[in-house]
């Protein structure tokens, strides 16, 4: 009696999991399918699965002007730079915040939370003006500065939660042993925060890889475009005549690095976000 009940429960759950996977992956799998079909096969609908398979969409996209990998390279450069900047600024700040109590912590912590929630799209116009005045437009290095700034609130909050979780005696013992602040960070604290630093870095990378409005307004030279504005430019060119196979190939290519990162660091991301939620 209870055996069949349990079996039925397990069956129901499997069905739900299948639905969940279909919902999450279906659209992406459809992109993958589309990207491998010839234009004719797509327009003729579901006419036969036997023929019409092709890699032409990929070769088209990769041999465009500029080739698609150029956008991905730009996005990677900006992502790496902004991750580096963010961590370099956020780690000392988070450390100081975690070691302080009282009003300062409350004020800075509250400000950071508000900034982390803030829809940054509101800021693009003023940031564009800064870029124009300082001549920072069309410069990938400069673009990573606002990215670092926008990522800082969440990064500091996540890292300071991780600092606060380390037993304070570890650092105190290092202090008594004559370690300087830099040595304590280098040898004791940061090695113990590996997962938190990795997940924070990954979130920053994701953000800058995906960021749209600022990249859209700061970058105009097509060989400097990052992935998001490049996609929008493709989309904006024309709605109905655009070859969707090439579209799909682009979306697959643009998603692959993130898929790889997500699979590599799945544990850290989940742990990092979970921790952030609990502390936040």
């Amino acid at each position: 009696m209870s055996g069949t009940h349990r079996q039925r429960m397990a069956l129901g759950r499997s069905a739900l999991v299948a639905l969940l996977l279909l919902w999450s992956l279906g659209p992406m799998l459809w992109q993958l399918y589309t990207s491998l079909r010839s234009a004719d096969a797509l327009l003729l609908g579901s006419a036969g699965l036997g023929g019409g398979w092709t890699l032409a969409n990929y070769t088209d996209v990769l041999s465009g002007d500029p080739p698609f990998w150029r956008y991905m390279l730009n996005s990677t450069v900006v992502g790496a730079l902004s991750t580096l900047f963010t961590l370099a600024l956020a780690i000392p700040c988070a450390y100081a915040l975690s070691r302080r109590g009282g009003l300062l912590r409350l004020l800075v912590g509250g400000g950071l939370l508000a900034a982390a929630v803030f829809p940054y799209v509101l800021l693009f116009l003023a940031l564009l003006e800064v870029a124009r005045q300082l001549g920072l437009a069309n410069n990938l290095l400069a673009l990573s500065l606002p990215y670092a700034g926008l990522s800082l609130p969440l990064a500091v909050l996540l890292l300071q939660a991780a600092f606060a979780e380390l037993p304070v005696e570890l650092e105190e013992n290092a202090l008594l042993e004559g370690f300087s602040l830099l040595q304590r960070l280098r040898w004791i604290l940061l090695p113990l925060m590996g997962p938190a630093v990795a997940s924070t870095g990954l979130l920053v990378f994701l953000f800058s890889w995906n960021e749209f409005p600022i990249a859209l307004t700061w970058l105009s030279r097509s060989e400097l475009l990052t992935l998001a504005p490049a996609m929008a430019r493709i989309a904006g060119s024309s709605v109905f005549t655009v070859p969707y196979g090439a579209f799909a190939a682009a979306t697959v290519l643009g998603s692959l690095p993130l898929l790889a990162l997500l699979l590599l660091f799945q544990r850290q991301i989940v742990a990092g976000l979970t921790q952030g939620a609990i502390k936040g």
């Binding site: 037993p167 570890l170 105190e172």
Partner: peptide, 19 residues
Amino acid sequence: PPARRQVAMVFQSYALYPH
């Protein structure tokens, strides 16, 4: 400052560097 006192302390938790 503590670094210049040349003091050693054994903590209740021992504070061994776990990594």
